[in-house]
Design a protein around this nucleic acid. Structure first.
Lengths: 238, 238
DNA sequence: CGGAGGGTTGACCTTCCTCAATTATTGTGG
DNA sequence: CCACAATAATTGAGGAAGGTCAACCCTCCG
């Protein structure tokens, strides 16, 4: 390591407004730097952790996109989420000291490894970190409520519209376009997440194109009529 | 309050093996008693908290059963869970200081009110409490993964079989029968939770009865062939 | 250039939903 | 305590949404 090596640190990370350090004072920021023990690169299709593996750390995504999935013995699986830069994964492992889902990189990615006992140690001292950890877990619970609403009651068009709006909103929060996005996942993975078959995802996207709501070129999607998507998710309140 | 009044306390609560005090030393138990500020009775159909309300406390269920539900503007709603004695509700409120779901009592119930800032305060001092709070939240995340699997990929019979097995297993952990249960919720509420219409719930229960897997007398269910239910949830692994 | 993985589209079928009628149960006021 | 209303549950018939199976195309790579 040369003296010029940029220190692995939250304090100079451009994701600090989205990630672990949210709401911390500068003095506290220095201390949270200690949490990030190492970084780890994960290549496309590789897993960051998998079900059954011992839980040691939470991971903050620095670059790239992941999917998390749970599986049953009989081979079915369900994508439980797609995570991008600044988001925290691994929370499932806390309860039984073992992960209960897989995290798979959808593109070459990098994460910050945050040993959980260090997080607990530090959050005993830094109140705002403690609060933030609680908020991250609560946010995940609330997000999953939203997915349950989607899976439990919405029709295919509604699910897909909600999915696209959610993705583009999160990308926009990261400085990307409000109307264009590149899907990092296959139609099958989208379908698994939304409780649909890949053919239905494909057909529904085609229908949106026909209706002039979006433009699709393979993985590239342009949202032409965001209002129409919103309208599909929230039918007219007459 | 007469001297004979039983103190509101975890240390003499018969749910302490299931609830907040799990894994605490006797000396720590005394301190956690301070968390439980008050108890609160909630009558059937009344809400413990509702969406939009300011978040102040977590609630440990002492007696009774609750449902939690999220709602959309256009009137649809989704039951996100059924909670019983020893379980903690209110975690959804942490992230934005406001609740995002309703908690409704399905029968006359009583909860222990645990102000969240007291929990945070104490869990800075008591490591095992800190860990336990994290586990409770992680458990909820993992539970919701299971619901997503159910909603995303299973058919009606599988959903209902999984539901019955889950209920009876939790009741058994509380000292009730391994094979008999009383449904505290309507067919419609079950349907909402499972992403099915009430007619489908009713029909599927009837089919289980015809197949000799269960016996149903209105809200009372007797599981005659638990193996068959398991087999429905996990199709033969050939 | 050729193969594998990913995506689209069509035809048909299954599952579950919708609508409706009927019965059972629970709750309430006289 | 009974009668009646309101709520909950069952069951049937018909229909719609999405699944299944299959053929075909595209595109990205080695």
């Amino acid at each position: 390591m040369t003296p010029q090596t940029i220190k692995v640190a939250c304090s100079n990370c451009n994701l600090r407004e989205l990630c672990m350090p949210v709401g911390l004072l500068p003095s506290e920021l220095d201390r949270i730097d200690d949490i990030v023990a190492t970084r780890r690169k994960v290549k496309r299709r590789e897993t960051l952790f998998h079900s059954g593996e011992r839980f040691t750390s939470l991971y903050a995504i620095r670059t790239g996109v992941f999917k998390t999935r749970v599986a049953t013995e009989d081979g079915r699986d369900q994508v439980t989420g797609f995570q991008m830069a600044g988001e925290i994964i691994g929370l499932d492992g806390i309860v039984n000291d073992h992960h209960t889902c897989d995290a798979v990189a959808l593109e070459d990615s990098e994460v910050c490894v945050m040993p959980f006992d260090r997080i607990e140690e530090l959050s005993r001292e830094i109140t705002s970190l403690q609060r933030h950890v609680h908020q991250i877990m609560s946010r995940e619970i609330v997000r999953e409520h939203g997915v349950m609403l989607l899976l439990g009651g919405m029709r295919a068009e509604e699910r897909l519209a909600a999915f696209l709006l959610n993705l583009v909103q999160r990308l926009h929060a990261r400085g990307f376009s409000r109307s264009e996005l590149v899907l990092r996942m296959t139609r099958e993975e989208i379908g698994s997440y939304l409780g649909l078959k890949l053919e239905t995802v494909s057909r529904t996207l085609s229908k949106f194109v026909t209706d002039g709501i979006i433009e699709v070129d393979n993985r590239h999607v342009r949202i032409v009529e965001p209002g129409a998507l919103h309208h599909i998710v929230t039918p007219a309140v007459c």
